[in-house]
Design a protein around this nucleic acid. Structure first.
Lengths: 242, 242
DNA sequence: TGACCGCCTGATGCATGCAACATACGATCG
DNA sequence: CGATCGTATGTTGCATGCATCAGGCGGTCA
């Protein structure tokens, strides 16, 4: 599970992180509020470097979609529009679907064992109602699955996507729906089963259905405890009519 | 079809292109050979700016995967490994599949009419054996389809993917297979039909099959005119067994 | 002759300074 | 009193200079 790739959002060790990673983390961790201005001089002082490397990093983060540089005005943390969030989740669905299919084709691998451990542990925590633990395990499940696809380009695109979503802010909300945890856990178990069965098609289908369901939980404002997928927003939400 | 987004690889007008776009184009257009060193001072002189903006651009291009910056040594045009190419094509398949599904769900839109025009024109050129014209139309078909998905994030990821592939270099080879053009053209027509029928599932399925077939033509060295998908490389090539 | 060691050149890495511009505020005029 | 214009400030945009280091080349020694 260790990554030697340069651009990671969760470096295993602390200090020896790239400037890019450190500033990115400052944004994705929610330390800064969206819309907040990011002065080059402030960052330069904070990280004890000059403006030059800061500017290089900011340009890259703009390319990643995390910030917006308004020329001659300033740099601001970007707040994804709802439309963009929907778009990103549509991508998330197919990317994770691909990951599941690739893992199913791949067969035995370290990540498969990790998935087994994660799913087993998450079944315990979900039944126990330990939301915090389960939330972390959900993250692990998806990340491990993408890693298990053995496709570095997929991992890169997925990382960028999750960074743009500031996913950390969203996951917690999902699990506020009572009963979602156990349902989600069951879906994880099913996905793992079909992957073990080396059924790429079913793995992809199940994964996409799972991601779609989780997405719905996130995008639909939590108004009632059990919701039956009624739509209360005219905007396209990536519905499954296939 | 016009894009006002900052990072595009094919700006509609010439001169007022960003420095990033201009340098990126220098790479993706094949003007530079892979492995070729990209000196900061050379680029600075060529574009009549100082090294500072050049460095910012190079850092961004590194993030895009187009170049490799070896610290204290130099910057080099990156040559994707064959494995990376396979990985990128796996992504291309699902991204274009998503695009087709989204277009099918969307219904009438300008891009749909454009697709109709492109497919009709390409049927003519493919039957006439006009390879050059057909190659351009193939590009148009795929680009228009992705644009028609009405998902800006998908467009962005797709652009990056195509840049990494240096797709321009590869497409031409595909059409060297005699008969591929007419087959491909027929697939395009079928895809357009199911999109018009608003059948997202079939659209995605057809699109993925088409991309996969085209990919095979690209990845399998052209040894015989009609090949029946036999594999001559042990490496995983993203096979469809679902 | 062969291997090793030190310099030398080229590159990048970064700090700094100046110029240009967008924005906000306050004074002035109708 | 309201609108407008000028200025003041804070920001980014870019050029330049120096420090640092990797890699190559030649000389020297065994």
């Amino acid at each position: 599970m260790q990554h030697t790739i340069g651009a990671m959002n969760t470096p295993p060790v602390g200090p020896p992180a790239t400037l890019l990673e450190r500033i990115r983390t400052k944004i994705t961790s929610g330390e800064l509020e969206p819309g907040n201005p990011l002065s080059e001089v402030s960052l330069a002082q904070e990280f004890d470097v000059s403006r030059t490397p800061i500017r290089e990093v900011l340009k890259q983060l703009q390319l990643e979609g995390l910030i917006e540089i308004r020329p001659k005005v300033g740099t601001f943390i970007r707040e994804p529009t709802r439309r963009e969030i929907v778009e990103l989740f549509q991508l998330k669905e197919v990317l994770e679907g691909l990951a599941a299919a690739l893992m199913a084709r791949r067969g035995s691998c370290p990540e498969l064992d990790q998935l087994e451990a994660i799913v087993s542990a998450s079944e315990v925590s979900s039944n126990a109602g330990d939301t915090d633990t389960y939330a972390a395990q959900v993250q692990d499940f998806h990340q491990t699955l993408v890693n298990g696809a053995d496709n570095t380009k997929l991992v890169e695109q997925y990382e960028r996507l999750m960074n743009q979503l500031a996913y950390f802010r969203l996951v917690r909300r999902t699990l506020e729906h009572p009963g979602r945890a156990v349902t989600s856990s069951a879906e994880h178990r099913h996905i793992l089963t079909v992957i073990k069965d080396k059924d790429p098609f079913e793995a992809e289908t199940a994964m996409r259905a799972h991601v779609f369901a989780s997405t719905q939980e996130l995008l639909v404002p939590r108004t009632r405890t059990t919701l039956s997928l009624e739509r209360e927003e005219p905007a396209d939400d990536g519905g499954h009519e296939d």
